[in-house]
Write a protein that binds this DNA or RNA. Structure first.
Lengths: 126, 126
DNA sequence: CGGCATCCGCTACGATACTG
DNA sequence: CAGTATCGTAGCGGATGCCG
């Protein structure tokens, strides 16, 4: 149960860090994105769409997101059981943030170039 | 030397993940924020302002940010040595993103409430 | 199906030194 | 001052197995 404990907050003096820790902890972005893109869906569907995630981690992150109020979990007591996940109202309010993020992607190749430059210069020095 | 290796990207199918990994890896937010708030400054100044960060980790993150082209490092060969860091043009282009992030902070207490609700319900069940 | 329990490797992080 | 070197550790994430 020690797996969901939060690290000793390194943020003070930076007002955006709490939001970052909340929204951008590992795997939450693909999960929220998938829920946003494909709407309400079952556990296995999420698992298949995100592909490289393991069920254990998917469960952990979904629990966290549910606790934080970003995702709504609905349990249907049937045989076999059916569980559905969807983005909450609060989660949907992140949409503009994701949009801004997506827009910034155009700069990714600038980053690529910066890295290439940096690595080239390093190679000269040794 | 294995400390700066990136984890096996878990993102596919989510277009914003690359940006998230780049900008929101641990400590980068406080660093970028501090550089943005106080402008060009020396290593010790950053160290003091972020407070809970260790010089080792600060160095690691600054190197990464420099390599990614988000931060510019200037070395002055004096005695004692003087090194200054500042946000690059590319780094500055993240400003709207940080602004959106800061705006979303108003929802943090909604998250607090969601957590309290969730925890209360859990306590009932056991 | 949708988990939870358990074991386990790995590594990023932190603390504490020590240099040019 | 601006880092590096070394060591120890916690916790994430993967793998496996079991259950209602």
């Amino acid at each position: 149960m020690t797996e969901n404990t939060v690290k000793p907050a390194p943020e003070q003096a930076c007002p955006v860090s709490p939001v970052v820790d909340l929204v951008f902890s590992r795997w939450t972005t693909p999960i929220l994105w998938t829920l946003h893109e494909y709407g309400r869906q079952r556990f296995v569907e999420l698992e298949r769409r995100i592909a490289s995630i393991t069920p254990k981690v998917l469960t952990q992150r979904l629990r966290q997101l549910e606790r934080d109020g970003l995702v709504v979990r609905t349990y249907h007591a049937e045989v076999p059981p059916r569980v559905e996940y969807e983005i909450s109202e609060l989660g949907r309010s992140l949409a503009p943030l994701f949009a801004t993020l997506a827009e910034w992607s155009v700069n990714l190749d600038a980053v690529e170039r910066a890295r290439a430059d940096y690595d080239a210069k390093q190679r000269v020095r040794r």
